[in-house]
C-alpha cells in the first residue's frame, strides 16, 4: 500500500480532462492522481472511457480541456490549472522525450511483425536513447529472461503465442526504463490459459515498485495487485478506493450493479 504523502509529486495528475469523439463526450471532467509506486486499476463497462483516459496519459489522445501532468511536467494542456482553455500537446521534441519515459502495453500487443523479438526490444533504446546495438542487445536479453522468454530472442512475433507476444511487448516497454507503465486491457485478447503468465509478469513488476495504471476486466488481478481501484462509467469516475473498500463495500449503486455482473 502506498501512503498518500502530502507534498509528493504525483506521477500522473489529470485535471478536469474532457475528451469528445465527434458529438459524444467520452471523458467529462476527469480528475485523478497516481502517486509514484502506486498501482491503479481502472475498471468499468465497455465504452466507459477507461481506455481513452489511459491513452490521455501518454498523449495518444489529446484532451480538448484539462491538463495532464507526468511527474510534475505538463504533457497536454496549457500548463495552468483550471483555466479551461483548449488543450494543446507539448511541442514535438518534448512530447517524444516524455513518451520515452512512459511504457505502454496494448490489448493487441502491437509488436512489429517485420522484426525479430530482440529487434523489437532494441529499436527504441537504439533510436531514442542512443544505446549501441550491443548495449541494447544485452539489455534486451536480460529483459527476455525476466519475462521467461530468453530462448525466443530470434523468433518472429508471428511464431509466438498471444501470451508470449504480450510478454515481449512488456519487455519492449521496459527496455526504455520507464517510470510509469500503462496497460490497456493487456489480457483481453488472450486465450484464457495464457492470461496467468502475463498477469504474473505484471504482478512482479508491481512488487518491484513500478508505477502502473491498468485497464482490465480481471477483477482478481485488481484485488490482489491494485493499491487503488477506480470505477468509471459514461466518462466519469463513479467511485474509487482500495480493493477492499470498492469490491467488498461499494458505496454507489452503479458500482454494485457492475460488480454483480463481473464477479
Amino acid at each position: 500500500m502506498v501512503p498518500w504523502t502530502a507534498g509528493q509529486t504525483a506521477m500522473v495528475e489529470l485535471n478536469g480532462v474532457c475528451k469528445t469523439f465527434g458529438k459524444s463526450m467520452v471523458l467529462s471532467g476527469i480528475t485523478l492522481r497516481v502517486m509514484p509506486r502506486e498501482v491503479v486499476v481502472l475498471i468499468g463497462p465497455s465504452g466507459s472511457g477507461k481506455s481513452t483516459l489511459l491513452r490521455c496519459m501518454n498523449a495518444l489522445e489529446t484532451p480538448e480541456q484539462g491538463e495532464v501532468y507526468i511527474d510534475g511536467v505538463v504533457l497536454t494542456g496549457n500548463g495552468e490549472k483550471a483555466t479551461g482553455r483548449a488543450a494543446v500537446a507539448s511541442p514535438g521534441a518534448a512530447l517524444h522525450r516524455m513518451r520515452a519515459e512512459i511504457g505502454m502495453v496494448f490489448q493487441q500487443f502491437n509488436l512489429f511483425p517485420h522484426m525479430s523479438v530482440i529487434e523489437n526490444i532494441m529499436l527504441a533504446p537504439v533510436r531514442v536513447r542512443g544505446l549501441t546495438r550491443e548495449q541494447a542487445r544485452r539489455k534486451g536479453v536480460a529483459l527476455l529472461g525476466k519475462v521467461g522468454l530468453e530462448d525466443k530472442s530470434h523468433a518472429l512475433p508471428s511464431s509466438l503465442s498471444g501470451g508470449q507476444m504480450q510478454r515481449v511487448a512488456i519487455a519492449r516497454a521496459l527496455a526504455m526504463e520507464p517510470k510509469l507503465m500503462l496497460f490497456d486491457e493487456p489480457t483481453s485478447a488472450l486465450d484464457p490459459e495464457m492470461v496467468g503468465e502475463v498477469l504474473n509478469v505484471m504482478n512482479e513488476l508491481a512488487e518491484e515498485g513500478m508505477t502502473m495504471v491498468v485497464v482490465t476486466h480481471e477483477i482478481g488481478f485488481a484485488r490482489e495487485v491494485g493499491d487503488r481501484i477506480v470505477f468509471m462509467e459514461q466518462g466519469r469516475i463513479v467511485e474509487e478506493g482500495t480493493p477492499a473498500q470498492l469490491l467488498e463495500a461499494p458505496r454507489e449503486e452503479r458500482t454494485r450493479s457492475f460488480l454483480s455482473k463481473v464477479l
Partner: peptide, 29 residues
C-alpha cells in the same frame, strides 16, 4: 494497422522514425 504507429510513438520514437523504421518497411512490401 494504427496500433503499429501507436506502439512506436509510445516508445518515444518521433513520427519520422516511426515512418522510417516501423511503417514503411511493412508498407513497401
Amino acid at each position: 494497422d494504427r496500433g503499429q504507429r501507436e506502439a512506436a510513438l509510445s516508445l518515444g520514437l518521433t513520427p519520422w522514425q516511426t515512418m522510417r523504421h516501423v511503417i514503411l518497411p511493412q508498407a513497401v512490401k
